[in-house]
Design a protein around this nucleic acid. Structure first.
Length: 572
DNA sequence: GCCGTTTTCGGCCCGACTGTTTTCAGTCG
């Protein structure tokens, strides 16, 4: 049982307790525990071995025992007993927007509805209308919610979310009454997937903003429209929320709507201790009979009032950053401008769409000092992998192009396949010719944990392999990461001086934020590569940088922030 | 169920919007 699986068990418990109408704070305790376990950079087994489970915030005596039980037996009696008390399908009803635990319970108690299909047929037979508290409008909302669930569009990738957000921020910026505008929520924190788009606007004419927003051409349906806050659904079924605030509230609102929830809760605790209160309108003194506005115009001002250094949005998850901010020990996160080159790209020599020359030109235009063309190796036939003979031609072409550059260099590279037996697809005598060797697994994803771990360990131990690309193999929404011992890879990567990649391709983002942070803590260096197959995709670097920032990485942790001389010096 | 710079008991973040109510519960973030 790994961290994610244990977190899921606690989440399921929270949901069942919710339906049963249990104490909300008990429910919150399970949710909080789940979130904290999920964001641990160490394997939960380490805490069990060291008998230090209660060091994890939100884990006390009871949850410690439950974690141990799960770890040892693979299951939890408390959960299986709990499951018996409610019908199986009931949890899926909670996924319907506008249907919460109270409604789910009501529907079950009155009509014995225990699944979405039960609910649909009850609506068809007009059975809902008779229930106290449910009328036409509620039924309509449930129906629309069911449609959404069926389409299965619960979260979107960060890349898509950014596109949608740009459309709305551009459109709203054109309104003269808009003084300031910003995205908020998980999009601003740059989470790898985003559920809905939050936009914050400063204006003295909220009514006008609400009108324009809800009438934009991309809007399919208005879900809610109030004086200062509205929600719509776009034609692609993306939910967008816009909230209008006054200038003196903007920082407070931005802080509040950026979250995360746990981060906000902790800030409020700090405020409470100082006899202050934080909400989306500002920081207020609650000393004396009357509340007094203290701050709220900017986030910086609010952090200052709380005696904290400014915390970047990507770090606001309550995983230790608030404590560091109070001690002035926050890391200085890497920035997109720090990136000096791309170490994972493809050309027409394998399965890329552009020539080496075109890729290089695009890299120069981005202000890079180098680009590595890492075409696939021979056995990867689906990707037009390169034979040893083709390599000579490619090397000659790169040498010729490099003669014409000043302050820029193309690195002769390869993405060499790690085959199912753990061998590399080129001999050492070929590998030593390259400037940069990226190694990756492309086949045999279903092998056992020990087999896959051994394959990657072998690659790390090769004296020519510089980078392990997309180390976990996951493809968002299509392929789960393969099973391997990440701690072991970190150890070997550190011992051998092998870099691990943050693959910036939007549906990979591999390593992810938690893995990146773990790598940093173990002293492993990372490389952010776009895996571009077209020159336009070099722009995906920003998604890789987003992952790095969420993983607390600084400039020094990432090797492609170095200039080319230093890069070639520190690589194997 | 967790947690403690007044607490080992009694708290636990806080407000907008909706739909159903005649003053508020449920949902959401």
């Amino acid at each position: 049982m790994n961290n994610i699986e244990i977190a899921e068990i606690f989440r399921e418990i929270a949901q069942i307790l919710e339906i049963k109408g249990e104490n909300v704070f008990r429910i919150r305790a399970y949710e909080r525990a789940a979130q904290n376990i999920e964001s641990l950079t160490e394997d939960i087994s380490d805490f069990i071995k060291n008998d230090s489970l209660s060091d994890i915030p939100g884990i006390g005596k009871d949850l410690s025992d439950k974690i141990k039980e799960i770890y040892i037996t693979g299951k939890l009696k408390f959960l299986s007993d709990l499951k018996k008390t409610i019908p199986e399908g009931l949890l899926e009803i909670l996924k319907i927007p506008s249907v919460g635990p109270k409604t789910a319970k009501l529907l079950y108690d009155k009509l014995k509805i225990k699944s979405i299909s039960d609910l649909e047929s009850a609506i068809k037979k007009n059975k809902l209308a008779g229930i106290f508290g449910i009328k036409e409008k509620t039924i309509e909302n449930i129906q629309k919610g069911i449609e959404l669930v069926k389409k299965g569009k619960e979260r979107m990738s960060l890349a898509i979310a950014m596109d949608v957000a740009n459309y709305f921020t551009n459109a709203l910026s054109r309104i003269p009454e808009v003084k300031e505008i910003s995205t908020a929520g998980s999009l601003r924190r740059k989470k790898e997937t985003v559920r809905d788009i939050d936009i914050l606007v400063v204006s003295n004419f909220p009514g006008k903003i609400m009108d324009v927003f809800t009438k934009l051409p991309a809007v399919k349906r208005i879900m809610a429209k109030g004086e200062t806050k509205s929600s719509v659904l776009t034609k692609d079924d993306v939910q967008v929320d816009v909230r209008v605030v006054e200038e003196k509230e903007f920082g407070a609102a931005l802080l509040y709507f950026t979250g995360s929830k746990n981060f906000n809760v902790k800030l409020r605790h700090i405020a409470q201790r100082n006899q202050q209160k934080i909400n989306e309108y500002g920081v207020f003194s609650v000393k004396g009979p009357k509340e007094k506005y203290l701050a709220g115009k900017t986030e910086e001002e609010i952090f200052k009032f709380l005696k904290l250094d400014y915390i970047e949005p990507e770090m606001r998850e309550d995983t230790g950053e608030i404590e560091l901010a109070s001690k002035h020990k926050l890391p200085k996160l890497i920035d997109i401008e720090d990136i000096k080159g791309d170490l994972h790209t493809h050309s027409t020599y394998s399965d890329g769409g552009n020539s080496i020359s075109d890729m290089a030109k695009a890299a120069i235009k981005k202000g890079y000092q180098y680009i590595a063309l890492t075409d696939h190796s021979q056995s990867l036939r689906v990707a037009n992998g390169m034979s040893a003979a083709d390599l000579k031609k490619k090397k000659a072409e790169i040498e010729k192009l490099n003669n014409n550059f000043k302050n820029f260099v193309i690195l002769y590279g390869t993405e060499v396949d790690i085959d199912s037996g753990g061998n590399l697809d080129y001999k050492d005598s070929i590998l030593e010719e390259f400037d940069i060797v990226v190694a990756a697994i492309h086949t045999g994803f279903k092998q056992s944990k020990s087999q896959i771990t051994k394959r990657i360990v072998n690659a790390c131990k090769n004296k020519h392999v510089d980078i392990i690309a997309h180390p976990t193999g996951r493809l968002w929404g299509t392929r789960e990461p393969y099973d391997f011992d990440f701690d072991e890879i970190l150890k070997v990567a550190n011992d051998t001086g092998t870099f691990l990649e943050i693959n910036a391709f939007p549906n990979r983002l591999d390593l992810n934020d938690v893995h990146s942070r773990a790598a940093k803590e173990k002293g492993v260096k990372l490389s952010i590569g776009t895996d571009s197959h077209l020159f336009e995709q070099l722009d995906n670097m920003r998604f890789g940088v987003a992952v790095a920032r969420r993983g607390w990485l600084e400039k020094n942790d990432v090797v492609n922030t170095l200039n080319v001389e230093n890069l070639l010096k520190i690589k194997k």
